[in-house]
């Protein structure tokens, strides 16, 4: 390797001063980036763990000043919020399970090169990526199907995600065909091949897609707002948080916001809308934050698998 004029010797290699400056800037920028990404979350956590009235005085950054778990106790005692948490969990578990299973099944079918309607089925699904009926016709459809006001309106319209379908199909197409062929020669039917061979081998991609669907389900609030806003029993955590947010936004200033959240009023001495908001924000995001780092390897692969090559 060419030895540059000036520079530092790191290990066995010389690094030019330009390189050193670049690295210092780059690493500092990365640290700054991390702070910007996680500070708001840590700050919210600190507020949720701090006494509500004390938090109103401000000055809480990374650490609670008067530590308390009362905010969490309050939220988890509140029946509406507890029920919303339950519905959120239910729609995430059921929605993910059903959707991943059904999507994998269709993906298997359209990955079979010999399938007669392969092209037709594939195109019928992919076309829907580029257009849709839009909000109003979809709303009217849900009404006509009597899905409004039911739990199933969260699950059924999203049974198959086209993007996920493509991701799983690409993965199955990459599996060694000989495995499937030899199973077929041994007399295994399509269902058996699907359950006994394809599903177990596809676990990495199924994990990826499960994450995508679970995040979507857990984070949804718009369908609750649109279809079930008159049915508090089917409200979700995100929707409840959204309602609090809208109330605080409408009043804007932190002082009058205290009037906004009716539930908080009854307990005005111990909780404030700001502390409830912080607490619910944490509850609504912690499950995902705990899970996604472990699936990082998979979702990166899944995204590149289905990302650019739509067809």
């Amino acid at each position: 390797m060419k030895k540059t004029s000036g520079g530092l010797k790191i290990g066995t290699r010389y690094v030019s001063w330009g390189d050193v400056v670049f690295d210092v800037c780059n690493y500092s920028f990365m640290v700054f980036l991390c702070i910007v990404m996680i500070y708001p979350m840590l700050n919210t956590l600190a507020i949720s763990l701090n006494d509500a009235n004390d938090a109103m005085k401000g000055g809480i950054y990374l650490w609670p000043r008067e530590f308390t778990l009362y905010n969490y106790q309050y939220v988890l005692k509140e029946n509406t919020l507890l029920n919303a948490l339950l519905i959120s969990v239910l729609r995430t578990v059921l929605g993910t399970g059903i959707s991943v299973f059904c999507t994998a099944m269709v993906a298997y079918v359209i990955s079979r090169k010999e399938f007669v309607f392969r092209k037709f089925v594939t195109i019928a699904f992919i076309l829907t990526m580029y257009f849709n009926g839009g909000l109003i016709p979809t709303y009217l459809l849900m009404r006509d199907l009597h899905l409004i006001g039911t739990f199933w309106v969260y699950i059924i319209p999203g049974i198959i995600g086209v993007f996920n379908l493509i991701v799983i199909r690409s993965f199955i197409e990459g599996l060694p065909n000989s495995l499937i062929e030899s199973a077929r020669i041994d007399g295994a039917g399509e269902f058996k091949i699907f359950f006994k061979i394809v599903l177990p081998l596809s676990l990495p991609v199924l994990a990826t897609v499960s994450l995508f669907v679970a995040v979507y389900q857990w984070n949804s609030w718009f369908d609750v707002f649109l279809y079930n806003s008159s049915n508090p029993n089917l409200s979700t955590l995100q929707y409840e948080l959204m309602k609090i947010l809208q109330n605080t936004n409408a009043t804007m200033s932190g002082k009058t916001a205290a009037d906004a959240f009716a539930n908080a009023q009854a307990d005005a001495n111990t909780v404030t809308p700001a502390s409830i908001r912080a607490t619910m924000t944490i509850i609504a995001s912690v499950p995902i934050i705990l899970v996604y780092p472990f699936l990082q390897k998979y979702f990166i692969k899944g995204l590149t698998l289905g990302g650019v090559k739509g067809e």
Binding site: L33, C34, M37, I38, P40, M41, N43, T44, V215, W218, N219, S220, W221, Q238, Y239, L241, M242, L245, T248, N249, A274, R277, A278, T281, A284, S285, I288, I289, Y292, Q296
Partner: peptide
Amino acid sequence: SYMPHFLSWVVAASIISY
């Protein structure tokens, strides 16, 4: 850096408005 992508917009909006 991937973390905020997984948060819902409700959570993000809550954080941002605060």
